[in-house]
Design a protein around this nucleic acid. Structure first.
Length: 329
DNA sequence: CATCGATGTTGAG
DNA sequence: TCAACCTCGATGG
């Protein structure tokens, strides 16, 4: 489920909490036992996020590549050092350095600092109920009990990161990591924006493929998923079926520049906020509820926020596509 | 309790 | 084009 913004947020958490600290790695589920054995005793040295993929380097010259796919998520627990550059949507950002309680039990779902990736609303709720029953803080387990299917657990003295449900979790050599990165389209937070714009333009122009599919193609541009795709097309008032080669160059450039704007907002807020020009009350509502956050995504049959026409839902390349047939005619 | 669906990608046919 | 992958919260009976 995570689009590019989530991966950059996760990378920042690893940079803050794991880089420079020796880890113990394990695969409670067993499906990454070999990789965990290789990582144990090593120290993360740096982290890269490109599009929807994260690369964590360990000494020496071992890279962990993780792609969360549609189900994956990282759960963090322990004395989480919050990254000062990212905010928590529910305002608990300021409560740093606490084990368990606030950060872990944050129930903000996709916005939670404790769980980034697929929404994990109930996880926090479950533990909340235990706490409500009077769970003594001293009895909190460390390391935390494994819950569910954990592919990879990375443990430092103070932090625990559990990876579950990834599409990809593998070790790479430096060359393999570089080859993977080279296969990906430009990412506004990795590439120089001007250079990225040219790369995007070169990959999208002259293509017979619908722009709605090109935006989802990670070789064309990195990090855009189904939500940002639909929203960016609406913001550009562009028909999703327009072949890339028929999209005017200045419109293609504006699509890239819109991604340059939207991605950092997503990284900073933890939400795919794609509406702008809102008054204070509308903005508050949009940040509070996903139903009020988007122009067209998940709004099938509802009136377009601009023209009132019913939002269309159709399948494009086996993914749900939402758009306004009037605004995006 | 069973079934469905999701912010994704790969590879077979 | 479509099934498979993989996890779990939401939904419905």
């Amino acid at each position: 489920m995570p689009e590019g913004h989530s991966v950059h947020r996760i990378a920042r958490q690893f940079d803050r909490n794991f880089v420079g600290r020796v880890v113990t790695a394990s695969s409670p589920q067993g499906r990454f036992a070999g990789g965990a054995a290789v990582l144990t005793g090593r120290t993360p040295t740096r982290v890269r996020a490109v599009g929807k993929q994260m690369f964590l380097e360990f000494d020496s010259d071992v890279w962990l590549r993780v792609h969360l796919g549609i189900y994956g998520a990282w759960d963090f627990a322990g004395e989480i050092l919050l990254d000062p550059t990212i905010a928590s949507a529910n305002g608990r950002m300021g409560q740093t350095g606490q084990r368990g309680t606030d950060a872990v039990f944050d129930d903000a779902g996709e916005n939670s600092l404790a769980s980034i990736g697929a929404p994990r609303r109930a996880r926090g709720a479950v533990r909340m109920s235990e706490q409500t029953r009077g769970l003594d803080e001293d009895l909190e387990e460390w390391p935390p009990a494994v819950v569910g299917q954990v592919r990879l657990r990375l443990l430092t003295e103070t932090m625990c990161a559990d990876l579950r449900g990834p599409t990809a979790c593998q070790l790479q050599t430096p060359d393999e990591m570089l080859a993977t990165v080279a296969s990906l389209g430009p990412d506004p937070l990795v590439d120089d924006p001007a250079a990225g714009e040219e790369r995007f333009l070169a990959a999208a122009r002259r293509k017979p493929t619908a722009i709605g599919q090109l935006l989802m193609d990670q070789k064309v541009v990195s990090g855009i998923g189904n939500v940002y795709r639909a929203e960016m097309l609406f913001r550009a008032r562009l028909n999703p079926h327009t072949p890339g080669r028929e999209v005017p160059e200045d419109v293609l450039r504006s699509l890239w520049r819109d991604w340059v704007v939207l991605l950092p907002i997503g990284v900073d807020t933890g939400q795919m906020m794609t509406m702008d020009g809102l008054d204070a009350e509308s903005y508050r509502r949009a940040m509070a509820s996903r139903d009020d956050r988007h122009w067209v995504y998940r709004r099938a049959g509802l009136p377009c926020r601009v023209c009132g026409t019913a939002i269309v839902l159709e399948e494009m390349a086996a993914r749900k596509l939402y758009w306004c047939p009037r605004c995006q005619a």
